[in-house]
Write a protein that binds this DNA or RNA. Structure first.
Lengths: 339, 339
DNA sequence: CTGTTAGCGCATTCAG
DNA sequence: CTGAATGCGCTAACAG
């Protein structure tokens, strides 16, 4: 590997001068600079960013910790993050947690050891001690989709209460009264918030809240599948289901297929996220749209601003984006009730 | 930040001893080791992997360059890569190319500067000069899905010719004769190979190949959409379409919806990949299944083996996985012909 | 078993 | 405008 020293020798200058040329620093004659750059190219010099990072304490790497990069919801956010970081001269190190707190803790540790300049974390929220430590250590990080208030760090999320309210209200206006909600573990804030929105809507329309209609399972396709199997086999099954995510809603569709329950005739279904395929699935899905790519862009910019001003006194902010109800054909009025 | 030196001082030993303790090296008394480890924990010592990489020339990072991480096909492969690398103590730096050769070249450059231990590259194949150089420089890398024979490097892909043959033959056996193929640019080897499989099947059944039925567009949903619009407006439109990927097939479905063409009644459709939602979309998709997660696992193991034995004389191998035709309901016999 | 030392490639003082 | 010197944190000889 050719180093800055090789370039210096060939050019008959010192390493300091080469460093200046390579980094576009001032205090160097334009001609010397040109000559050095030419020689560097001739020698096929490749800057050693490890050595550079060692000196500057900047790796130009951002750690990204998400539940699952293959979940279309996160996949699209990651795409937004990747493009934005790349544009600003950063790369991303990607880690999945599978909603497993052990893996989350391990990922944070590894990223600390790798000395990333900052992290974007979609926290499981089962434990947060490691994040408290992270904050104390002064490593910039931002929370994705799930806020942890007591942590007081930057966060980008959507208005889950509002989104869930819209979804539930839509079902209520279609005449539904037995509306189930299939969701995830309660330690996850987005789960709690969507439950809150769901309950608020029921309350607003004087519909009693039945706890047996709220199912906490895993935030996966098979979670949605299994929960809806249980639900639909109830003696008095719900006429509508509001699923935490489109992925879980697809699990509901799978269960309905097996039980020969027709959507929307026998069951109305609302998802959340509006993933790309939501409009192409068997029953085009009524859902709550989140601007996923934009979330990636916004959160990246937020983080990089922090990275560049590590001791800014600017208080942490939580950017809350309004989601939007998208009505397709998986929901239908019940008993001839008005839409 | 506390360093190895701080730990050494606190423990009353030299930095070398601390290094030995931390890295599980021999030549150290068990007791000293224990004491050092305890002190390191007390001091909240975090190893500086930049400094370590600087010395060992090992970053424990693998670069991953794909067309688009949000494409479910790649997303699942990436998940396989992430889990496998993590298990073996490596992290991944993720870069998207969007099938843009400029971005691919830039990504390779950045990953070289970051001194990754190896790369997994899904090449655009528009140019390959930068990959030739990469090989000459002795940086281990493996090709994902698309082989470049003259490069002579390791590769993991599926048998595109076989898969495309199966897909086309399936349509032929259903009685179709006007079978179109919607695909991507010819510089991409998987595109060429699937065309070859498609042609081979037609040949085997003595069906003339019509070039106007092979459409080269971009490998995206909208690419599939636009190409099928053209195709279906033809005076003598095809009765079946074999799409390069499920994503493109979904584009076809979108076009059919607009044109009120029914699948499979008016048009049979076969995709490729068997992405997770393929069985949930409007018309459950007949497709060619690739073991995407496994591809990620296999290619990672292949790469890491190379990384660990950089001057192994083992010749490069191309692992070709057999894909599998999955028949669902987007394909149907024509004119009462036998299935 | 442990300590001393050198040096990895670079940016950054400080002299000149 | 340029060069010499320093040190970042760590591992890997080597010496004891």
């Amino acid at each position: 590997m050719v180093t800055i020293k090789d370039v210096a020798e060939k050019a008959g200058v010192s390493v300091a001068t080469v460093s200046r040329a390579l980094n576009g620093k001032p205090d160097i004659a334009l001609e010397t600079k040109k000559r050095i750059l030419t020689i560097a190219k001739e020698l096929n010099y490749i800057p050693n960013n490890i050595a550079r990072a060692f000196v500057t304490k900047e790796t130009k790497c951002i750690g990204v910790i998400v539940a699952d990069n293959s979940n279309p919801f996160y996949a699209e956010i990651i795409r937004g993050i990747e493009e934005t970081t790349m544009k600003q001269g950063y790369s991303i190190i990607l880690c999945n947690t599978n909603e497993d707190i052990k893996r989350e803790i391990k990922a944070v540790q590894i990223l600390k050891e790798k000395r990333v300049d900052g992290m974007i974390i979609n926290p499981t929220q089962k434990k947060i001690e490691h994040l408290k430590i992270l904050k104390k250590e002064g490593i910039p990080f931002v929370l994705l989709n799930r806020n942890i208030e007591e942590l007081e760090v930057d966060c980008v999320k959507n208005d889950n209460i509002y989104g869930a309210y819209q979804a539930t209200e839509h079902l209520i206006k279609l005449g539904h009264r037995r509306i189930a909600h299939i969701t995830g573990p309660l330690y996850t804030s987005s789960v709690r918030e969507r439950i809150e929105g769901y309950k608020k809507a029921l309350d607003a329309y004087n519909i009693p809240i039945k706890d047996e209609l709220i199912l906490n399972t895993s935030l996966t396709l098979s979670g949605g599948y299994e929960a809806s199997l249980k639900l639909l086999k109830l003696p008095d099954p719900p006429t509508a289901i509001f699923a935490y995510s489109d992925i879980m809603a697809i699990g509901v569709i799978k269960a309905c297929k097996e039980l020969r329950i027709k959507i929307p005739e026998d069951l109305s279904l609302v998802g959340y996220d509006d993933i790309e395929v939501a409009s192409f699935i068997e029953v085009p899905l009524t859902t709550v749209r989140q601007a996923r790519y934009d979330i990636g862009v916004i959160i990246t910019n937020l983080l990089i601003r922090r990275v560049k001003r590590p001791n800014s006194k600017k208080p942490p902010q939580c950017i809350v984006l309004k989601p939007e109800l998208i009505v397709r054909s998986s929901t239908k009025a019940i008993n001839g009730a008005k839409g």
